[in-house]
Design a protein around this nucleic acid. Structure first.
Length: 567
RNA sequence: GCGCUCGUAGUUAAGCCCGGAUAGAACGCCAGAUUGCGGAUCUGGAAGUCGCAGGUUCAAAUCCUGCCGGGCGCACCA
């Protein structure tokens, strides 16, 4: 924010002595309008270094800042804050940065891409509600990069391998009644899986048969492989429409099954480098030397089979070779934190050259009164949640009857319903656990998607009434009302909010910013007349209105929320 | 047991990494606003020992230590 002003201010620090130059000048947006347009705490930091009183340092700096161009006045307040009011002209000029941030940057195709792995669909299982967490968080992080021009690889890393497919094959043969595997439904597959586990408790031999069947799959047995492939296709086809409703689209869905052959060389490498050693019962393990406190991890089971860790090692090798990525981001739940720590520590012990590599954690979704275990078969389907959300939105739309100004109420219901669920997920800190609650998840009031959608529709309505080109006439610079100043100040934060949300991988930073923007716009709207204002103010207020609508739409689209022209 | 993580109004929760002004919101509750551009809005109010106790600091929700409480994880599942 305010690059020229920042660099000018930074120069001022030189006059305070060489020690002072260690401090980086940083403007912040004050919480309260009465504290100026921008504020800084550099004087407080300087005071410590220079061993002077914060007030004295602040006074000295403020006198100089007050003379910089674009500054209307400058005050020292509190412990040593330097509060700056900018000239309306300077504020307006800065709005260009915000408007620019509303246009997606052209992808810099030659640059190394960021790989974002999310969704991680499991074959032979329906999408549960909890899948919405990884899917939405990952998608928004990918969008944030794409918007700013970084090439992105959106990767749905399929869970398409493992003993469960052997078990499923056995169950299908035993209880599938000779059905066509290409026509089975996901619910039937889930039922088979559940039945297998029930029966296996009575008949321990089933477990062994399942493992044997998986071995056949690994060895390329045609019959087992045929069924497995059918299950993969069935799952992808069944899940596609649900993902489409969430606007989730991927560049690749290469899954676990692709890395079977890549693991042997890694095992060899690990053994040769002395990183992989023998553990209990003949397993091959990694031990992490102090000061690491990580527990040892298995890379080869005692039967010689590979596991999740081995597969992820192969995966990272492949991704680096194939994409030369700038970063690999795994959007995976907290419960796998230890796994990723061990994975990354192992790669480090192997002395691999690695890009930025992060596990982007999100909290668990818990139910007040239900278990989410697939094995017990009580999984709540994502599709049901979306349907219920749209149903509730439709009911609200119907209630309002003629007050609705939508051409397509059906489409609006979809927009609001899906939006409410998505916004509910994205507006809270991803690191926190989420307790699933229908009313909370499907909120249509307050800090919710419909509030954003309504505000956008309202702003657009004003623009339409103003006539096509009136928002484009350049507004005269004048004194700002308190609400104009507040709204303008909020608009100016947009670009830094996008950056913050991206670098910290925190979608809720953007979601909460949009909510604040709506509040500021609605307050402004209620107090300052737009269309009926005198010409000079009218043009300026239309510019604010148009900017608010554009920022709202841009931000919402990054969150994959759709905002209507009218509702 | 060890490790990680969370604890903020009645409820849901932002701020914590990087210490600074009166802890910012939403729901619910109470009271208001429309001969003005969309009242799905706005204004005001009540509601907080920031889990507890120490420590560091001019200054602690924020950093450090201990304790209490919830969650997650802890070698052949992913």
């Amino acid at each position: 924010m305010f690059e020229t002003l920042t660099s000018e201010a930074q120069k001022l620090l030189k006059t305070m002595g060489s020690e002072a130059m260690k401090v980086a000048w940083k403007w912040e947006k004050p919480a309260d309008v009465n504290h100026g347009d921008i504020t800084t705490t550099v004087a407080l930091q300087l005071a410590r270094i220079l061993k002077k009183s914060p007030r004295d340092v602040a006074d000295e700096l403020a006198a100089k800042v007050g003379k910089l161009s674009g500054v209307e006045r400058c005050e020292v307040a509190g412990a040593g804050y330097i509060n700056v009011w900018l000239t309306p002209k300077a504020l307006l000029e800065e709005l260009a940065v915000t408007r620019k941030a509303c246009t997606p940057a052209v992808t810099r195709k030659k640059e190394a891409p960021v790989i974002v792995e999310y969704c991680s669909l499991n074959i032979a299982k329906p999408l549960g509600v909890h899948h919405i967490l990884t899917t939405m968080i990952g998608q928004v992080i990918a969008n944030l990069y794409a918007h700013e021009g970084t090439p992105v690889v959106r990767w749905n890393y399929l869970g398409d391998w493992g003993t469960q497919f052997g078990k499923l094959f056995v169950a299908f043969e035993k209880w599938g009644a000779g059905a066509d595997p290409a026509k089975i439904s996901l619910n039937e597959l889930l039922a088979l899986y559940v039945k297998f586990h029930e029966e296996a408790e009575k008949d321990p031999e089933l477990e062994a048969r399942g493992q044997a069947a998986f071995k056949r799959l690994e060895d390329g047995d045609r019959e087992v492989r045929h069924v497995w492939q059918a299950f993969v296709d069935v799952t992808k086809r069944a899940v596609a429409p649900v993902l489409e409703r969430l606007s989730a689209r991927f560049d690749t869905d290469v899954g676990e099954s692709h890395y079977e052959s890549a693991m042997a060389p890694i095992i060899e490498e690990g053994k040769k480098k002395g990183v992989f050693t023998k553990g209990e019962k003949g397993a091959t393990i990694v031990q992490f030397p102090p000061p690491s406190t990580l527990p040892p991890a298995v890379v080869l089971k005692s039967d010689g089979g590979t596991n999740y860790l081995t597969r992820d090692l192969a995966l990272v090798v492949d991704r680096i070779a194939r994409y030369h990525p700038a970063a690999i981001l795994h959007v995976v739940g907290v419960e796998q934190t230890l796994h990723f720590q061990q994975l990354m520590a192992t790669a480090k012990l192997l002395e691999w050259e690695l890009p930025v590599w992060e596990h982007i954690v999100f909290g668990r979704m818990r139910f007040a009164d239900q278990s989410m275990s697939t094995r017990k078969g009580t999984i709540l389907h994502l599709e049901e949640v979306l349907d219920e959300a749209v149903r509730r939105a439709d009911a609200i739309i119907k209630d309002r009857g003629d007050a609705i100004q939508s051409d397509d109420p059906k489409e609006l219901g979809e927009m609001m319903g899906i939006g409410a669920v998505v916004y509910g997920i994205l507006s809270q800190n991803r690191k926190m656990d989420i307790v699933f609650d229908w009313d909370k998840m499907l909120s249509f009031e307050g800090n919710s998607a419909p509030y954003l959608q309504y505000t956008h529709a309202r702003a657009r309505s004003v623009i339409r009434k103003a006539g096509a080109d009136s928002a484009k006439t350049s507004p005269a610079v004048k004194t700002l009302t308190v609400h104009e100043r507040q709204l303008l100040g909020k608009l100016l934060q947009f670009s830094s909010v996008l950056e913050h949300a991206r670098t910290e991988r925190l979608p809720h930073v953007l979601a909460n910013y949009l909510h604040q923007l709506c509040q500021d716009f609605n307050t402004f709207y209620n107090v300052d007349p737009i269309l009926t204002a005198p010409e000079a103010e009218r043009a300026f207020r239309l510019l604010l209105t148009d900017s608010a609508a554009t920022v709202l739409k841009t931000g919402a689209e990054i969150l994959t929320l759709r905002v209507p022209e009218r509702m």
